[in-house]
Design a protein around this nucleic acid. Structure first.
Lengths: 222, 222, 222, 222
DNA sequence: GATGAATGAGCATTCATTCAT
DNA sequence: AATGAATGAATGCTCATTCAT
């Protein structure tokens, strides 16, 4: 058996077992059995249970980053573009979580084990960084309000993480994830307050009859 | 020694130790030592390490619910009132987390141990329920947009939980929590999009020169 | 409360609890509760759980010895007298066991705890000694065959102990104990073999037409 | 190391240690050491200390049953045949107990631990069943008196068990077990009473000069 | 005498890891 | 590379006993 095939089978089995039982209640023997190898074999490919766990988390984190990387980020000229791109991103991320509920739960909310907290922190911070970059770029281009970028980026990530954790991982929702993404984005972009309640000063200039020209939002480097 | 005093000392010590080490790495002996009692004494007050852990989480969850219960919820006549009340709520909650970083981290993101998942789920769902009620009451009164209440309530809770987890528990921020709350509320209420970019149809009626009268928001039953 | 009353209540409660649970599964707390006193009080009257157990056993052993002491042992002139006296003894002993199944079981078959083995051994050996003495006196008087006294005495005691243990303690038989005693005695005295199968040499002398005179059996000192 | 070899070593070591200390005072660590393995190894072969104990008892009970199974039970045509066969059985059983004093003591008189009481009860009842069957067959063939089979069978078993427990296990007698068996059988078959004291009606018919023909005792199914 | 909260030594069991085959 | 039997350190929990009140 080609070595890397065994390693992959172990990662798959570990994702399964860790996902179902959590780190502490998962037994190395169970993972080995699920992978169809002997217990000792696990240690040919991974130094320890902890490293194996980290590898499982890392693989999922990488997949999440891959989702963002595959989105076409250029040509955002309006809030509608922005909304469409992010709807794609959210939907793809939700679908990834829906297909990997167990591991997604561990990455988003598992106990600190070895470097697991760092893996989670890196994923969260990478995501916050992207968010921050777009908020700043959006503010610069005039599309978005000039909010305090860091805490708002964090809020946006939290909103996503929490929805993924509860609606998708815990409750197991797998359908209509696109609509879910759009509802969240509608909230993010336009807020809760009814337009009729907006202070006049915030109203779009009626005179021009159209929105002031906002420059296109160049994809920020993240 | 009065029994409840010992029980309280144990809860305090357990919160300390569980908070610092997490459930699995905390030793009962360590908790006993921290409480200044013998190991066996722990079992006079708590059936097991697991039950003690649950009691610690439950006490914190109760404190969080108490924060919401102490807010004066009536007399919300405008989005400004709404904002003020929620700013109080957010600030008080953040301060509670800041004063109990260890336990807050466990409640918001610890591993599933015994009934811990249910305790967390109940806290989250209670909070989501309050949020949902206000969203619906706000929409009914005309103050808020008629959004899909459940997912948006969840998003709002997620935004809070994530901020508490990362900014307060993980990073240890303890100052300016009031400003943090206000920034989040500003985002929640008005969204990201610059007013200039809002679609004209959503603009406040210019003719009237003022916002249409919205009825006062009666405190919903939660 | 008069001290000895408390001590007696403790002995009663301990007999109850030890009888129901056995030594190792009985809790001192349970005995205290059954006696209606606090745990510490047990230690005012008994040095330890072990000594309390021994006291319970000793009290029962004493009662068994008392049964034998109350039988009128003189005037045994025939095997019929012998049979009647022993039937009384067996019946009274069986009834004592029936009224104290729990403790009887412990005395006859409990685990070795502290001096419990010695208490049992003393009771068994006292009983064997009585039996031996009667076998020897019986043989001397010509009523009984000159068997090897010690092993046969032991066999007789074993037959009693086993019947008490299984028929009375384990199966809970409480009625007709007198008939049970008689059946056992019939077996002891006349054996299994059908008279028709007895070897001629053992037959009573036909010439005399009657049994040879046997002297009365004087109660042996035991 | 072949698995069953380790299991056997553990059983041997456990028999040794349990026999010497009893269940409650035996330490798993001691058994492991006696078997020359690590503590954890015990749990590869036995679920718990309790199961190991049961296995030890069961193995001995099986050996006792094996003794009875190896006796040639056919061709019993007289009380002499009967006596010879049972002398063999008793002797072999006594020798088994003499070679395994520790375990024999536990099987015959240990505390109730897990299923130990059931193991003992099954052994006792199997033995009583065999005894009952022979008593009934003996009575049917005319060799034995028509006694109440069940209580007498129990008495016989008790006599054996008690002798094994005290003479062999406790006192450690290992020699002359054959004679011991014969003494017991003599008592069982012919009873205590001197032939001269037997009631005339029970005397063998003098006219025939010999015992009436009794039919052969066919081995009962047990 | 009586209480019962507190004590802490003691032990079965688990399971990640190793290594001879 | 693969195996899986063996390892043994580590720890939650029990409960007889004590002693301040």
């Amino acid at each position: 058996m080609a070595p890397h095939i065994t390693a992959d089978r172990l990662l798959d089995a570990a994702a399964e077992v860790f996902g179902a039982r959590g780190y502490h209640d998962a037994r190395v023997s169970e993972i080995a059995r699920a992978a169809g190898v002997a217990q000792g074999t696990v240690y040919l490919y991974f130094e320890s249970k902890e490293r194996l766990y980290e590898a499982v988390l890392e693989r999922f984190a990488e997949a999440v980053r891959g989702v963002a990387a595959r989105i076409r980020w250029d040509d955002i000229r309006s809030t509608v573009d922005l909304r469409d791109r992010f709807a794609d991103l959210y939907t793809a991320t939700f679908e990834l979580c829906a297909r990997n509920r167990g591991v997604a739960g561990l990455v988003l909310g598992g106990p600190p084990v070895g470097r697991s907290s760092e893996i989670r922190a890196r994923l969260i911070r990478d995501t916050e960084r992207i968010s921050t970059a777009y908020l700043e770029a959006g503010a610069a281009s005039g599309l978005l309000r000039p909010l305090s970028a860091a805490p708002i980026a964090r809020a946006i990530v939290g909103l996503l993480v929490h929805t993924a954790t509860w609606t998708i991982v815990t409750e197991g929702r797998t359908s209509d994830l696109c609509r879910l993404a759009e509802e969240l984005l509608d909230f993010e972009l336009y807020g809760l307050v009814a337009p009729s309640q907006l202070p006049p000063g915030d109203a779009p200039s009626a005179a021009a009859g159209e929105a002031p020209a906002a420059t296109a939002l160049h994809s920020p480097e993240v």
